[in-house]
């Protein structure tokens, strides 16, 4: 089992905090973004910061479910750190002239639906679900998106910022997989019954209806920007490899469900994509006004280092 001492990890997290004010956002290098890159990068960064923000809200919900004070505190920090990543990514966008004033990047409709679902139902989800989904998002982020970004972007400040973000994400993943294994402890039939009970939860079904099209749309967006699809799939396979390396990890029914889902996502020929891609197309017809204003937790995002 991935043996992580959560208390030591908490100390590490506390001792490695950084702030936007530590970074010189005006230092030279922004000019290295080419005119060709600019529009694609803007779309990419926008998706990226929203994924971070959505992940942040996921950690906020997980903090409520944590069984120990240490884990609760770790998730509270991770909530803040994911928000910091979103803030820092917005600060980079601002540096590259992609944001005006206090505007937020526009979330696509699938992100918007996911935000709505998180706002309404994430606090009601059991830790098993969020604790198994969030690592998948993080590993995709860490293993594919960030690496791609650093290969494409020449601005040294971008590298400096993502070095910090990557260090945080590595700690998140360490804890994520540790918890996934903890969630695989106990009698198998009990774990299975509990999972079957949760699968039928209408709130979860709505969550799947928001999450699955989001993944497909992000995949399409990212591929359009030049990321090789295989990179994303390699990252998702990594989830299966790390999550399934121990008996406890493999016994976690939610790991199995999400791994199987990952296999469907990476197989372009799988029939799974037909209804999901249809949902993506359908979601384009949802008027943004139908969702009402964004929840106020979204308004806490800022690119300003000081307040």
């Amino acid at each position: 089992m991935a043996n992580i001492d959560l208390d030591t990890m908490l100390d590490k997290v506390r001792n490695t905090q950084w702030a936007l004010a530590d970074i010189d956002w005006d230092k030279p290098g922004a000019e290295r973004i080419t005119a060709e890159q600019w529009p694609k990068l803007k779309a990419f960064m926008s998706d990226l910061m929203w994924i971070e923000h959505v992940g942040a809200r996921g950690f906020a919900a997980m903090a409520r479910k944590a069984e120990s004070d240490t884990l609760r505190e770790l998730y509270t920090w991770f909530h803040a750190e994911e928000q910091r990543h979103a803030n820092a990514e917005m600060a980079l966008m601002r540096r590259w002239g992609m944001l005006e004033g206090d505007e937020l990047p526009e979330p696509n409709i699938n992100l918007r639906l996911t935000i709505e679902w998180l706002d309404r139902y994430s606090d009601d989800m059991p830790l098993e679900v969020l604790g198994s989904v969030i690592p998948m998002l993080e590993i995709a982020l860490d293993g594919a998106l960030l690496k791609f970004l650093l290969e494409e972007v020449d601005d040294p400040l971008c590298h400096e910022v993502f070095e910090k973000i990557n260090a945080d994400e590595a700690r998140h993943l360490g804890v994520d997989f540790h918890v996934m294994e903890l969630l695989g402890r106990g009698k198998l039939h009990q774990l299975a019954i509990k999972a079957i009970g949760t699968v039928g939860n209408p709130k979860l079904i709505l969550g799947v209806l928001a999450y699955a099209p989001l993944l497909n749309r992000m995949r399409d967006n990212i591929v359009a920007m030049g990321l090789k699809e295989e990179r994303l799939y390699e990252a998702m396979n990594k989830y299966e490899r790390i999550g399934g390396r121990t008996k406890e990890g493999r016994r976690n029914p939610w790991f199995q469900i999400i791994s199987q889902h990952g296999k469907m996502v990476v197989n372009r020929n799988h029939p799974y994509h037909k209804p999901v891609d249809a949902l993506v197309s359908l979601s384009n017809y949802i008027p943004a006004k139908a969702l009402g204003p964004v929840p106020t937790w979204v308004e806490k995002l800022t690119w300003r280092p000081t307040a």
Binding site: Q17, A19, L20, A21, E81, Q83, R84, T302, P305, T306
Partner: peptide, 21 residues
Amino acid sequence: TWPIASISENGVRTGEGIEHQ
């Protein structure tokens, strides 16, 4: 409600990376 990371010369730095002055 962000956790407090540190106190600086000008204010309070919280986990979301912002310095509140």
